[in-house]
Write a protein that binds this DNA or RNA. Structure first.
Length: 425
RNA sequence: GGAGAGUUGGCAGAGUGGUUGAAUGCGGCGGUCUUGAAAACCGUUGAAGAUGUAAGUCUUCCCGGGGUUCGAAUCCCUGACUCUCCGCCA
């Protein structure tokens, strides 16, 4: 959420941020509502103060048995004015709030200005030893491989639930589980994260806190009867762990990692990448979440990306790093790196991770603060999160890059102690 | 699903419709004492907002929302959540 004080003090910076994020500039509207609001508060507080004084006198008069009827009339007329002012104030605040909660975060100064995904900047490319973009033999895609070895069954997944709900079978299911466990163990034991196993259904306050509500309503599944939402990412429950709480400075940074299934309606992308695992309604993801001091958040973002990269380097799969341009940033993010892994059969990069710094945007919505020792004051923390990583597209990359000319699939070395087998097929 | 109890400051826990932002204890912070620490003692200790250069002043907040009243943490209605017992159940 936008801080109205920031807008008040830096209207031009707020305006520029919105424009660079392809948003409508509503800064003037905000400023005039804000001014109106403050004027009303000033007047109403004064009236309330007067009324409180008179009421106190009523108490004193009644104690001594006097007649207070005259000044009781005074409090009534003050009360009427206060009610009218309060009503107007609530309306102005509602309008202001309605705009504020729908405004996206502003990009960090280091983010390249751009309109769409085409303006994203590739900042790094990592290829395993001996890798070549020219396939030495015709690569089967993950759907063909899944069928050949009976490890992925999209038809039956569709029968059970609908399209976009993949069914993993046999060694495919084991490989999926191995991948999840390998990623969790790495982050816990080597990168210093504490493990969380979160609820998969959350309430609307949690969805608001991380910024999914109100703007992303159409992308989420909803369980209306119970007012719950299946999570689109573990970011939601994990970030909301500290909603409405105050942390101590000594606690920071807090680093959590958790596995969850992720549920997405993908309402705006029907007909796009519908093949197999490329875009699904349910997938598995290991998510890293950090709560840090504001001055540390950008170095923590770089570390977060490295933590995700470590997984890919251990798996020995080709990937590249993109710095998203302003226009491609998600609603809540101030800066974001995407990690894309290579699909030799599709001959393209697949987004497997997204690592973002939200600065105080989510903390302000979710009211997550810490007390700074030096000043003794409460400040909003900065929150970050990154996929470490999503298994679905990573699985595509693994299956396709680890296939042999005979169509077998070699299990990446680091996963073997988790799978108990070295080859599929 | 049935029955009951509860929700107050960082935590525990009082609270008579009228100096209650809220007793008390613990914790935190500052100090005395001590070589240092502990103990003891003394003091201090919520948040948000408006206004002001500042000191300060004012407003709001005792789970949420409505109501009664000149005045509500306290009375009434309503919602949410938590806990206990019974039933059902992985």
């Amino acid at each position: 959420m936008f801080d109205i004080k920031f807008v008040r003090e830096n209207p031009d910076a707020a305006r520029e941020g919105l424009i660079n994020k392809n948003e409508i500039d509503r800064v003037d509207e905000l400023l005039s509502l804000d001014e109106k609001k403050r004027k009303l508060i000033f007047e109403t507080d004064d009236l309330k103060s007067k009324k409180n004084q008179v009421s106190a006198r009523v108490g004193q008069i009644k104690k001594t048995g006097g007649d207070a009827s005259v000044i009781i009339g005074e409090t009534k007329s003050l009360g009427d004015k206060i009610d009218a002012n309060d009503k107007e104030l609530r309306e102005v605040e509602a309008k202001l709030e309605d705009i504020l909660i729908r405004l996206p975060n502003v990009p960090h100064e280091s983010v390249p200005v751009g309109k769409s995904a085409e303006d994203n900047v590739e900042t790094k490319r990592w290829l395993p030893e001996g890798f070549s973009f020219d396939n030495e033999f015709e690569k089967l895609d993950h759907i063909q491989l899944g069928k050949k070895h009976d490890i992925l069954d999209f038809e039956r997944g569709a029968k059970i639930s609908g399209s976009g709900f993949p069914l993993y079978k046999g060694k495919g299911a084991t490989l999926e589980r191995a991948l999840i466990n390998f990623m969790l163990d790495t982050h816990i034991n080597q990168h210093g994260y504490s493990e969380i196993f979160p609820p998969f259904l959350v309430n609307k306050e949690s969805m608001f806190g991380t910024g999914q509500l109100p703007k992303m309503q159409d992308d989420m599944y909803t369980i209306e009867r119970d007012e719950l939402y299946p999570i689109p990412t573990a970011e939601v429950p994990i970030t909301n762990i500290y909603r409405d709480e105050n942390l101590t400075e000594a606690q920071l940074p807090v680093k959590f990692v958790g596995f969850s299934a992720c549920f997405r309606r993908e309402a705006a992308s029907y007909g796009k990448d519908t093949k197999g695992l490329l875009r699904v309604h349910q997938f598995n993801k290991v998510e890293m979440v950090k709560f840090v001091k504001p001055e540390d958040s950008y170095t923590e973002l770089e570390k977060l990306v490295i933590d995700a990269e470590d997984i890919l380097q251990a798996l020995k799969v080709p990937y590249r790093l993109l710095m998203l341009c302003s226009g491609d940033l998600s609603f809540a993010a101030a800066k974001c790196y995407d990690i894309e892994t290579w699909s030799p059969a599709e001959n393209k990069w697949l987004e497997s991770s997204s690592c973002s710094n939200f600065e105080a945007f989510q903390a302000r919505r979710a009211n997550i603060r810490f007390r700074r020792e030096e000043t003794k004051k409460l400040e909003f923390v900065h929150t970050l999160n990154g996929s470490g990583l999503a298994t679905s597209r990573l699985m595509v990359t693994i299956l396709e890059t680890y296939q042999t000319p005979e169509g077998k699939i070699i299990v990446p070395e680091v996963l073997r102690k988790y799978t108990g087998f070295e080859v599929i097929g």
